[in-house]
């Protein structure tokens, strides 16, 4: 009896979360793919009928016959979409680079800090992550507005005479992404740098290597696993970002997350927004797989 309960329990441990994710994560993707192949309609829900199980095998065959790649053809033909994909990737790439430039010195400073204050510094980097993403993005609107705090400060300091137009431009989107995703980049780089043996750098400098070259050839090289992990953690979510381009970007800021949102909520075109989602997913599969491979390699090298 006891053994029976245990074997049931151990099976449930796997089955319950597994089934949950199958139903609420995997099956929804299959539905997205299916609807991306169906026709738009002005009914509720706004797409042509899905499978009708009561119609049996014939019904299934009929609905397969109705599948069309029209929505994908539409995505290719309308320049809006591929421009949006391209500019999302571009904006995400530039922001990732900027985040690296801002984040690396922070991670380096933390790793070189006295060991007693490191936990506090770590806590300080993680803490903003606990505050709402939306709030952190919203906070920048008040700063970047033409009559906002940044312009007030710069004019008070006589750096500029006329207010800078930053809000509703791509620059504001870059600032927003760097700000929101900074902890994702700092933490992996910090953990790579913290493990590093600094006597290597000292040895190089003793042998006459200039500090900058020693940093580049030893420190940066050894922190590469952290840099790669951090960059992926910024790049992947940034490509599909919606809140930042919507609140900080302007009308000329094209990002695919925003396109999907407006296709869905404003145009009510569910099949096209599903097709947009499928293509976005395919676009992200490559970096996600690369990221997971880099992660497992890093884990193996630790062993």
């Amino acid at each position: 009896m006891q053994r029976l309960i245990s074997s049931i329990a151990s099976r449930l441990v796997i089955a319950v979360p597994y089934l949950w994710l199958l139903i609420f994560f995997l099956i929804p993707f299959i539905i997205v793919f299916k609807i991306s192949l169906s026709q738009g309609a002005t009914s509720i829900p706004p797409y042509a009928p899905t499978f009708d199980l009561s119609a049996g095998w014939q019904g299934l065959k009929d609905s397969f016959a109705q599948f069309s790649w029209d929505n994908y053809v539409w995505l290719v033909e309308d320049p809006l979409y591929y421009k949006a994909y391209l500019s999302s990737v571009l904006i995400a790439a530039v922001s990732t680079l900027l985040t690296l430039i801002v984040g690396y010195p922070i991670a380096y400073g933390m790793a070189r800090a006295p060991t007693t204050i490191r936990p506090t510094l770590l806590m300080l980097v993680i803490l903003p992550f606990w505050t709402s993403f939306l709030i952190r993005v919203y906070a920048w609107i008040g700063i970047l507005k033409p009559e906002g705090l940044l312009n007030q400060f710069l004019m008070w300091a006589h750096v500029i005479d006329t207010p800078l137009n930053i809000l509703n431009t791509n620059t504001a989107v870059f600032i927003g992404i760097v700000y929101s995703y900074l902890p994702f980049l700092v933490l992996p780089i910090y953990s790579a740098l913290e493990k590093m043996d600094y006597s290597l750098v000292e040895a190089a400098e003793d042998l006459g290597c200039p500090p900058i070259l020693a940093f580049w050839k030893i420190t940066f090289r050894l922190s590469m696993p952290g840099v790669i992990a951090g960059c992926f953690l910024v790049f992947i979510p940034a490509v599909g970002e919606f809140v930042i381009p919507d609140l900080l970007g302007g009308s000329q800021t094209l990002m695919i997350g925003k396109t999907l949102w407006s296709e869905f909520f404003s145009n009510r075109d569910w099949p096209v927004s599903s097709a947009v989602a499928v293509v976005l997913l395919l676009l992200l599969v490559v970096p996600i797989v690369l990221f997971q491979r880099a992660e497992s390699r890093a884990r193996e090298s630790e062993k």
């Binding site: 929804p28 539905i31 599909g240 997350g257 599903s274 976005l280």
Partner: peptide, 20 residues
């Protein structure tokens, strides 16, 4: 399925759940 939602763009997760 455990790791994918961590990096999945929210617009995709939201859309797919709604369609389900």
């Amino acid at each position: 399925m455990i790791y994918a939602p961590l990096v999945m763009p929210e617009v995709i997760t939201g859309l797919s759940m709604l369609l389900l």
